[in-house]
């Protein structure tokens, strides 16, 4: 039995939008175990990103507790929170958020700056991480010379920099074309499978969500539904159409040639 890496209890988050009080999150409870791959889904304004920001300690809850690796971060003072973000969290953004004036390796090195003293060690680790996300040889390229898929890989490598407890991905495939979407989601699934990295991903993309183990549907600041994902990488799943075994790299079933992810009706019922 894996131990929980994240525990959220009675989480409430309200904020003022002009003169209107908005309940972004209402009495939310969630436990995430180490090594889980979770998708948070839901319509716009359902509180997905707010939840992610609260978990990532870049937003404060109005009420409730968030415990990460047995530490209640809601009690951590503001000026100490950066350490939680640096050491426990890895952020992946929809628009990559790389620093344009730094090359790929330097971007990956950024979070290590406060943590790893030796410059050589930082360089070495950044190179290894870029290698892991399939960007060896592109270390010295600045973001504008990389494709969008490549930029997101750099961002993933950056998120892994300090070996975080949780990777928080906010619409990581939102800005990518179909081919890159598939590659990034497979990369995340593989990291989860092979490195045991806990990943919480906010997404609109049901196709991407199916690669996770657990899918949560958020509506009006509450988790309204929970479903099991396929996690193709982990489960050695079979084609839902013909029963033939499928691989993570497959988009269509090798046997019946039918697309594997026709899941628009996922949360329909």
């Amino acid at each position: 039995m894996s131990k929980p890496v994240l525990q959220i209890e009675n989480l409430n988050k309200t904020y003022m939008l002009g003169k209107r009080l908005v309940n972004a999150l209402t009495n939310l409870n969630l436990t995430v175990n180490k090594g889980e791959f979770i998708a948070i889904m839901g319509p716009s304004g359902s509180g997905k990103t707010t939840l992610l920001n609260v978990i990532g300690c870049i937003d404060k809850p109005t009420e409730g507790t968030v415990t990460i690796d047995d530490v209640n971060v809601t009690k951590t003072p503001e000026n100490k929170l950066y350490k939680v973000r640096r050491d426990k969290m890895g952020f992946i953004f929809q628009s990559f958020n790389l620093l344009p004036y730094l090359n790929a390796r330097e971007n990956v090195e950024l979070p290590m700056e406060g943590k790893i003293k030796s410059r050589e060690e930082r360089k070495k680790r950044a190179s290894e991480l870029l290698n892991l996300v399939g960007l060896s040889g592109r270390e010295n390229h600045r973001p504008q010379r990389l494709s969008q898929g490549e930029q997101q890989r750099v961002a993933i490598a950056r998120a892994l920099a300090n070996d975080p407890a949780i990777i928080l991905a906010d619409e990581p495939t939102g800005n990518l074309d179909t081919k890159n979407k598939q590659e990034i989601i497979k990369l995340l699934a593989n990291l989860n499978l092979n490195q045991g990295t806990t990943i919480i991903m906010v997404t609109h993309d049901t196709n991407a969500a199916l690669h996770t183990e657990r899918m949560l549907l958020l509506k009006d600041g509450k988790i309204v539904k929970e479903k099991e994902g396929l996690h193709l990488a982990k489960k050695n799943s079979k084609c839902p159409h013909c029963g033939a075994p499928i691989k993570i790299t497959d988009d269509n079933c090798q046997a019946c040639k039918k697309p594997l992810f026709q899941t628009d009706e996922l949360f329909a019922s």
Binding site: I58, K83, R85, M89, G90, F91, N97, L99, L110, E113
Partner: peptide, 16 residues
């Protein structure tokens, strides 16, 4: 602003 937000999200302290 966005760059500052990113730097903070990935663990930069206010001092830095």
């Amino acid at each position: 602003t966005k760059e500052i937000g990113t730097l903070k999200a990935i663990g930069f302290s206010n001092k830095v």
